[in-house]
Amino acid sequence: MNLDVYASARATSGKLKLKAKARLADGRPAEVFDACVLLHEAARAEQRAIRLVDAPQETRFAALVEACFCFVEGLDPHAAGRVYSRLYQEREGMSDELAASLLSRLTPRYESLQEKYAVAVGGLVALGGGLPMVTTTIPQVQRAQREAKRMTSAFPGVAGWWWVAYRIAESRAEAKRAWNALTCARRLEPDNARFEAISLLAATKALEYEAANEYIGAVRARIDSSHPELCLMYALAELRLARARPRNRKQRWTRALDVVRTGLSGEPDSTLRNNLRATQLLLESYIDQRKPSLELLYRAGLTEVAIGAPAETDIQDLLMRGIASRVRANDDMEDAA
């Protein structure tokens, strides 16, 4: 058992919690959000500490209580609920008295948070089913946006609601607002591969060219075949930047093609494979100086995207819209959170 590493991981978590408390006490929305981010990080550190050692049951249980408490204080009923469920599994075989002592501080706070959350979710109309699967009228979308704002204000620790806010803003072509919401989701869940993947494309819409270039450049070094969605979004981001500044476009296309091939060498699901394949064909036609046609969409299996499109349509735009609509169709809170 490496106690030094364990102690260091626990100390990290403790310091984060103390910083978070001071920010919560400050009370301004930005400070409260920072506190939520710190508490999420503390919860992860707590769980990491326990993985570092072959800990006895009481220690594992206590670390989970700590992690759950961090999520409760970090205003994230979803993550808190997931850890709370694990507590039921971990307590088997423990004495009732010990378990009660360990849970005495957590349970009232947990139940109070879940109660508040249930009331808030019960008050949703436009977002009552989770997400606006199909956006219809403008007033409906506006209402959904207001509801998302209400949820992110009351429960700023739920990454899923920031994701909802991002999707709505994105559907309204509000690039800056979408970027800000997605950034909040990413700060809460920095390891969420989908948030990171989508952020590449969002960066090219919301940021200045140089900043977007720097942003996607920072991700490039970490790309491997185990994250095909990241590969796809990286390639799309390069395509957008190549169109914005045509001077280095061949270099960008070649880089994007390499990344797409990396993505295809992993194990993408069928939808992702079709999207990657279409992007590959598009990039190859650009590099070979051939005008891309609808044929590449059929060849990649993206028949639904191709059907109904005019013959002279811009294939790059069509492909990007097709991919974006698929992301939207696959949205749900659990995926995001």
Partner: peptide
């Protein structure tokens, strides 16, 4: 180190 959800709050030995 420091606890939040379970006692004790401050730890000398983890």
């Amino acid at each position: 180190a420091m606890n939040n959800g379970v006692a004790p709050d401050f730890l000398f030995d983890v």
